[in-house]
Amino acid sequence: MRQRRTEKWIGALALVPALLALGCADRTLSRSGYAGVELDPPAPKPEFVLTDTQGAPFDFRARTAGYVTLLFFGYTHCPDVCPVHMANLGAVLNRLPDEISRQVRVVFVTTDPARDTPERLSTWLAQFDADFIGLTGSPQEVERAQVAAGVAPARPDSTGGADYAVGHAAQVMAYTPDGVGRVVYPSGTRQVDWAHDIPLLARAGGGS
């Protein structure tokens, strides 16, 4: 009798992690099993050349060929979406196995080249991951890159004075190693979603 009661208590306690796990599992997956939003039809990887934080030209398509490429347009004074995306990507890449994270390139293009100097961009990105690539250019070059990537060009909010905000696309575009854009990750993408999808992206389109 006592043993049965003990078993009941242990069974009840086992419900604790089960209930918590159930509370975590409210993610829906796309047709191909991605947590992100799958593009239908897929988009080609854009072609543009900008300047990296060392001041050297960076041919986006050529320099990221063969890698899972995560492209984001944002700015370092952004109070919310940009640091959250970058922090989540940095945290996940740091935890994924080396053979996966080695296949990933994160490219951050500033939409605020006036304030985001190469030094500032480099320092800001390094707090998330020293391997993140920061790109800048003239406002026209940055706008052309956004158009090439198929996102709405960013617009500074002129009412904010010197501490102005910049309205920009909030999604990260993901390109598989074959150079095809398959999935986008909107604002609100969680670390657990990235951890689920990055290995899938690495395997898709000819990745190892």
Partner: peptide, 21 residues
């Protein structure tokens, strides 16, 4: 937990010097 469990805190505008984990 390997990753942040609460979306509300993970996706909150960050406060300087503190990661979600």
């Amino acid at each position: 937990s390997r990753y942040p469990v609460y979306g509300v805190y993970e996706l909150a505008p960050p406060i300087e010097g503190r990661s979600a984990m």
